[in-house]
Simulated assay, not measured.
Amino acid sequence: MSYGDAASSAGAPRMPRKGFKLVLLGDASVGKSSILMRFLHNKFSEEIETTVGAAFNTKTIESRGRQVKFEIWDTAGQERFRSLAPMYYRGASAAVVVYDQTNAVTFERAQEWVRQVMSTSTNPNIVIALAANKADMEDKRQVPWEKAEAFAQQEGLFLLDTSAMSGKNVLRLFEGVAELLPDEPFVPQQRGLQVTTNVGSTNGAGDGKPPSRRLCCQ
């Protein structure tokens, strides 16, 4: 399943473009693919297909005077695909872990995902965001925001309250990750762990000073 490439708007100033691998992680039905569809096309569908294995998409956004090309792997959340996830995130520059705030079990699993990424990623500076999805169903919330906030602060995560249905904070989620990325994409030494495409560069550059690696609770 692929939603296609969505590039930055025509006529915008051209800046250096770098490809950063980003992986979406989380249990089944938490809304990973819906978040991605909202980010790529600003659309929402109740009939979205279940991801099998992983789906690949790209989108380029502007951040800190540069064009950041996200190379996004949307991974399946079913248990039978769980063992495949490290193949996608080990060489990633960023990971977005999603949970359904109306389902406490998915938050517990999200914590496991975060710790797994931190302990096994080949990138010691991987940017990790935590998306508390389905904010439009706040009346059914099972995970107190304070609990998510405490975990994010403890682990140094970029935390946002999101809704793929309404679009709340979805763009900000990816913009926040882009702001935290270093100037250069992570390149793993191990062969076969990185999936990238060749991208050109044009005149202009950032200030060479990456921001803090992570921040919490926007």
Rank of each mutant, 00 (worst) to 15 (best):
V117P: 01
Y89V: 12
P182R: 12
S34N: 15
G200D: 07
Q67F: 15
T120N: 12
L193R: 13
A55G: 01
N123Q: 06
L159Q: 07
S9G: 05
L24A: 08
N57D: 15
M137D: 09
D100Y: 09
S163N: 08
K168M: 14
V114G: 06
G167D: 01
I128Q: 00
T50V: 11
N169S: 11
A7R: 13
A95M: 05
W145E: 09
A76R: 03
A110F: 10
D5H: 12
Q142N: 01
K21A: 14
K32E: 07
Q190N: 11
L40H: 01
A55F: 04
R172D: 12
A152H: 10
V117C: 03
P182A: 04
Q67G: 08
A110W: 09
L36D: 07
F44R: 02
G176Y: 01
Y99M: 07
A76Y: 05
A164P: 05
L24P: 05
T120Q: 11
K43W: 01
A104C: 06
W73E: 09
D139P: 00
Q218V: 03
R14K: 15
M137S: 05
S34R: 12
A85Y: 00
V195G: 05
A132P: 09
G77F: 12
K59Y: 10
Q142A: 14
S45H: 04
Q111N: 07
L180P: 00
V127F: 10
F151E: 08
L193T: 01
K134D: 03
R17D: 01
Q78V: 14
V68P: 08
M1H: 04
M165Y: 06
F186M: 03
K21Q: 15
T58W: 02
E46S: 11
A131P: 00
G19S: 13
T196W: 08
G204E: 10
E138C: 03
H41P: 00
A95S: 06
T106H: 12
T196D: 14
F44I: 00
Q67V: 11
G65P: 04
V143S: 10
R213I: 07
Q190D: 15
Y99A: 04
E184Q: 09
G200T: 05
T120P: 02
N198F: 15
A55Y: 02
E179G: 15
R213Y: 07
P210K: 07
E79L: 03
A164V: 06
G91Q: 08
R82W: 02
S8N: 10
A129G: 05
V187D: 08
F20M: 09
R141C: 11
Q153P: 00
F107D: 02
W73Y: 11
V52T: 10
V97M: 08
T58A: 13
A6Y: 02
